[in-house]
Write a protein that binds this DNA or RNA. Sequence first.
DNA 1: CGCATGAGTTGCGCTATATGCAACAAAAGA
DNA 2: TCTTTTGTTGCATATAGCGCAACTCATGCG
Lengths: 259, 259
Amino acid sequence: MTVKNIAGDNHLSSVKNALRILRSFSMDEPEKKISELAESLGLNKSTVSRTMSTLASEGFVFKDPDSKKYRLGLSLLSLGGIVNSQMDIYRESHPVLNRLVQEVGETAHIAVLDNHEVIYLQKVECNHPVKVLTHIGKRNPPYSTSSGKTLLAYAKEEIIEAVIERGLQRFTRNTIVDPKKLVTHLKHIREKGFAFSIEEFHEGVNSIAAPVYDYQGKVIAALAIVGPKQRIQPSKMPALSKKVISAANDISSRMGYWK
Amino acid sequence: MTVKNIAGDNHLSSVKNALRILRSFSMDEPEKKISELAESLGLNKSTVSRTMSTLASEGFVFKDPDSKKYRLGLSLLSLGGIVNSQMDIYRESHPVLNRLVQEVGETAHIAVLDNHEVIYLQKVECNHPVKVLTHIGKRNPPYSTSSGKTLLAYAKEEIIEAVIERGLQRFTRNTIVDPKKLVTHLKHIREKGFAFSIEEFHEGVNSIAAPVYDYQGKVIAALAIVGPKQRIQPSKMPALSKKVISAANDISSRMGYWK
DNA sequence: CGCATGAGTTGCGCTATATGCAACAAAAGA
DNA sequence: TCTTTTGTTGCATATAGCGCAACTCATGCG
């Protein structure tokens, strides 16, 4: 007898399995074995094996001939590209990011909130040899980065509650783990119109973010610059934040937001 | 009675349906209705409806609140980003270079544009005793080699201007040193889809290059073959260029470039 | 304003089909 | 070489996905 999906789930389970398999791949673990997947997702080896061969037949995964493990396939690259091109913020923000990166000499990126996580839509890297690595599509917790906190600050009450509900995990000495502190912190962000993170997610990494508005005046994204603490120092924050805010406003106005 | 999948297909059909639905989205048709999908894929409306709700629950699609049609979701952005980061041109180009070298008997290499210079990322040498020496990491001016001219031809206007600004140095009798000539020459390259250099950088050395595209259709590298003028003769150029273009296209498709 | 048309969702019953098991095959160690 | 681990496949079973059709919303049109 199979353990049924939790009640209320009227979803196609084999499809759901396939999607969960795909989503279990990550930047850190780009290749997976059948048995690993079966183990981690609580599925039978044979189920995973068959699902993988279906995924492979449509180009969503492929078997690496060297490591003999599975990797994500080119179909996902195409589909990801379509998603990317659809977001008009992508188009509009690119030149602005470029200019900002030139001005401040730090990596800049655009992030949005998706299901209690921050997801990076786009980035432009600085050409400094020392830089902070992120990648498009990466997901981070929203309460520990400047872009995440910015998005959270302007998000609906329920989302903030849901994030707190799910628990605030400590990543560094400075991570905000006290729900009350987070709430007042978000209030400050709304008042000042920008957010910063001083080693709250990764040691030695600081960032500054500002909100991007759409034509309805809704916050739809955050623009952030990220860099090592030696370069993004607290003393430089006022000047840098002005530039970040100005760039974010620039994108907002391209999105149809008028003051 | 359902029409079964074509015999020999031992794939999970509901998963396959889901994947086919995803793949039916394209740059030109980024949003789809249930009934359209059902029609075009020969599936029942209810099947599509249920599949879509499963895909939506995992963030692979979402319903556009305005058009009320489905669009590809952010999960695909994440997964596409992972594929993208893995797709280093090194791995993908190596076997193709090998085959090309075997076919044409000349040294082949991959080059990219870096800060107004051409840099050679990778090469596979032919086993001919007489060969042209290059090495990985070598930098050359972009206006006097076939790979450099290819990259320049598809580069941004500013880069071309910057290269001209820095001056066109004469290396041989045939080096293009007239800015106007260079600009029209680059236009020709774009029209033909490949470039050649006849003793423009080193006396006695000819080369042929073609562009390599990434999944966004952007030119990210050039593939070139280099050899002594006795072997890469103008009369052989048409046949050789075909092979170079075909190899370059092969790499492009491995990088996720479709058509 | 109400009727008609079309698109999407959902309950139901049937059986096609995805699953678990276990045997098998194929690598990878030892 | 033998052992161990990992992936694939045949088979029987019952689950779960499918088509059908009724139903609900939207949308358009007279």
